[in-house]
């Protein structure tokens, strides 16, 4: 049971890393970024290429930095322009971007499934309550917790974190206080896409690499964002852990309904609390 709980935390942790980027981008730009799963996937491929050249940890760093730069470019060229557009326009544009990025990856790396190596340092198992548990999975949990705590501290205790929370609630009011929300967005979107890259690399050894690897986890990430409350960082954390457990236990005890359960939970939460678990009050 403990092992299954930990497996749920592993998936929940990956979901958190991906969905918190969605929350950051939606909060600042009001853009529902369907291409976020593709950024996760590209992060994994970049990390894979560097790891294949000999450095797994170098792959992690390069993927995170490359996706941060990509996020800044996306914000300046696309998300800024989409800010005042109807949501359906942003969905269509980001979905188009997803297709472009998938095609790009297919051209560069091909369609075949690739196996992401695991770093030697993190291979093997440890004994937990009499059962073996992969060290790498513990690493995923640790990374998720470190990111969650760092992000929460940054948002809670720094001046920029205050501005980010403010702009995520009301960008106009925040701007009127003298804060350049466009400049703030550049940082925040870059951070969000960097986290997508990080989650892609961290998820790599647990999944097979393919151009569509981001699609399934993106759907779960959107469910996390909706259940947590659009724009809520704490809500995303709780919802990600919840979906991780439901995903894991659903696959074991209700395999026929496994993919439905997160969606059913989302519907239930929306009926109970239409703004999600920690949705913004107005």
């Amino acid at each position: 049971m403990l092992i299954q709980l930990l497996n749920g935390v592993v998936y929940g942790g990956l979901l958190y890393l991906l969905s918190v980027g969605l929350v950051l981008i939606f909060g600042l730009r009001q853009v529902v970024n369907f291409a976020h799963g593709a950024l996760f996937m590209i992060g994994a491929y970049i990390g894979y290429s560097v790891a294949a050249a000999g450095s797994w940890w170098g792959g992690l760093v390069v993927a995170v930095v490359a996706m941060a730069i990509a996020g800044c470019v996306l914000d300046a060229t696309l998300f800024r322009a989409l800010r005042k557009q109807d949501h359906i326009v942003t969905v269509l544009v980001t979905f188009g971007l997803l297709l472009i990025l998938e095609t790009l990856v297919t051209v560069i790396w091909g369609k075949a499934y690739l196996r992401y190596p695991m770093p030697d340092l993190l291979s093997g198992t440890v004994d937990i309550a009499g059962s073996p548990f992969p060290v790498y999975r513990l690493f995923v949990i640790v990374v998720s917790i470190v990111v969650a705590l760092s992000l929460a501290s940054w948002l809670r205790f720094t001046r920029i974190g205050l501005y980010v929370r403010a702009a995520s609630t009301d960008a106009r009011v925040t701007s009127i206080q003298g804060i350049n929300v466009d400049r703030l967005s550049l940082i925040v979107v870059g951070l969000g896409t960097a986290l997508a890259g990080l989650s892609g690399v961290v998820a790599g050894p647990l999944l097979s690499l393919s151009p569509t690897m981001g699609n399934y986890i993106l759907i779960d990430s959107f469910i996390v964002v909706v259940i947590g409350g659009m724009g809520s960082f704490g809500g995303a954390f709780v919802a990600a852990l919840l979906i991780g457990q439901i995903h894991n236990f659903g696959a074991i005890y209700l395999p026929w309904a496994g993919t439905m359960l997160p969606l059913l939970l989302m519907v239930g939460v929306l009926i109970w609390r239409p703004t999600g678990l920690s949705g913004a009050r107005t």
Binding site: L162, A166, T169, V173, Q177, A280, R281, T282
Partner: peptide, 15 residues
């Protein structure tokens, strides 16, 4: 234009 989810002090600091 009060930011509802920020505390009173955080709203002031924003100013």
């Amino acid at each position: 234009g009060i930011l509802p989810n920020l505390t009173v002090e955080e709203n002031l600091l924003l100013g």
